[in-house]
Simulated assay, not measured.
Amino acid sequence: MPSVPEPSVPGGFAETYRLQQARYPEQGPGWQPVHTVYVPADRFSARTVAEWGERALSLLKAHLAGPDEVAEVFDVPSGLAGVVHEMVLRKLSTEPVEDLRVDFEDGYGVRPGPVEDGHVAQAVEAVAALHAAGALPRRWGPRVKSFADGDPARSVRTLHLFLAGVVERVGELPGGFTVTFPKVLMEGYLGQFAQVLGELEAELGVRLRFEMQVEAPQTLPFLRGDLNESLGGRLAAAHFGVFDYTAALGLPPHEQRLDHPACDHARHVMQTAFAGTGVELSDGSLAAAPASDRAGDVHGLWRRHAELVRHSLRHGFYQGWDMHPSHLVSRFATVYAFHLARYDSYRERVLAWEERRSAGGGVMDEPATIRTLAAALRRADAALP
């Protein structure tokens, strides 16, 4: 065999590889909430989480008596319906809300300064009471007003009062805190908000991360893989806002829906920009509640919500917004059925690959597919109660 000189490493390779590892850490999916519940700040109290759970349980017991109803309303195979029903019942009884936002933006509106200050103080007391009772959701925090509204001082004041108040009342910032930053129409707002967080970190001795909302077509062009890096690693997630986004595109009101092709495009841009970065993705909401407590109206709402949740899941968005207690039933039922339907077949394919044997059924899995199967199993394990 002829001798060849030792190959030289291209100049700059070490730095490029370091950037790759920092920007795309290749970490597998950990726990991510399946939903975020938004509650207007003036209606938020220490009873909110329990009230949502109680209302959802009441609807389930009244209109989803057992596996047959689960199979019929949510199009769940009969073999899974009993397991799904039991899981949803247990979830609503123990942890009805995984992620909570105290909303000072669209769901709250514009109030005089002293009034909003008062609602911040009220929210702080509620958070402290939930924490003391061991009932604070695993993720929690406020949604502040957008800088795009032209009044960043109000947004910053609310966040400062909220954080300082919680730290003072609790003695620390409880785990799971995140703040949602809406209507990011200009990239500069992200850097300015990250600067605000840096100043609050220095003052309060805490580490802060935030979620940006993708609610306008103007936002899509500056989504990219190094965005979190440019913000000092403070960008935790990107959440899609269906109604502002579709309105900005000029879609007619009856087409403002999560499964519109225009929304699919936005979600795919978000996925492309943040793939491999560790920035979580969340879908938006359904702005509807049952027209009445009659079974037909409740089932109709659940069917529509389940359609949208399935659409999100098929597109790789494993989290969404819930705006009404009824949504908890359809959210959990649909998520659990989605993960359970293929769990055993995914596990068999991974085991077959690890044992270097055929999985059967004519399947020839590639390494990338095996990684995806393993990730799906981890995601299911984290989501199922």
Score class of each variant (00 low, 15 high):
E354R: 11
G150W: 11
T94K: 11
G361C: 00
L340C: 02
G241D: 04
W321M: 13
S155L: 07
F44R: 01
L57R: 13
R55L: 08
A153Y: 13
T178R: 07
H327C: 09
A202M: 04
G141M: 05
A359V: 10
H35S: 09
E280W: 08
A306K: 02
R23E: 11
D244K: 00
Q32T: 14
D151L: 12
R356F: 10
M212W: 05
A56C: 09
R267K: 14
L59Q: 03
E6M: 13
Y24M: 12
L136P: 00
Q195W: 11
A62H: 12
E125L: 06
A46L: 00
G300H: 05
L92I: 10
G175F: 08
P137E: 07
A129Q: 05
L100Y: 02
L59V: 01
V97S: 04
G107Y: 05
T246P: 03
T246V: 08
M212C: 12
H254I: 04
F332I: 00
L130P: 00
V156Y: 06
L328W: 02
L185H: 08
P5R: 13
P10C: 07
G191M: 07
V144I: 15
G109Q: 04
A287W: 08
P253K: 15
H339R: 06
A306M: 01
R55N: 11
G191R: 09
G233Y: 04
M270A: 03
P137K: 02
G82Y: 04
E229M: 06
P217M: 10
R207W: 07
K145P: 04
L200T: 00
R154F: 09
P221M: 12
E355H: 14
P252N: 05
D264G: 14
D151V: 14
R303I: 08
E187S: 10
G176Q: 07
A289S: 09
L100G: 03
V83C: 01
V156H: 09
T219M: 08
V170D: 04
P142T: 00
F147R: 04
H254E: 13
Q21L: 14
L19E: 15
R304W: 13
Q21M: 15
Q213Y: 05
V156G: 01
G360D: 08
T36Y: 12
S292T: 11
S78M: 09
D344E: 15
A123C: 07
G134N: 09
D283K: 04
M186A: 14
A41Y: 00
D106F: 03
V279G: 03
A62M: 12
A291L: 13
R347V: 02
G109S: 05
R157A: 13
E125S: 07
H265Y: 15
G360I: 08
P114A: 07
P325L: 00
Y108C: 00
R43I: 10
R90F: 12
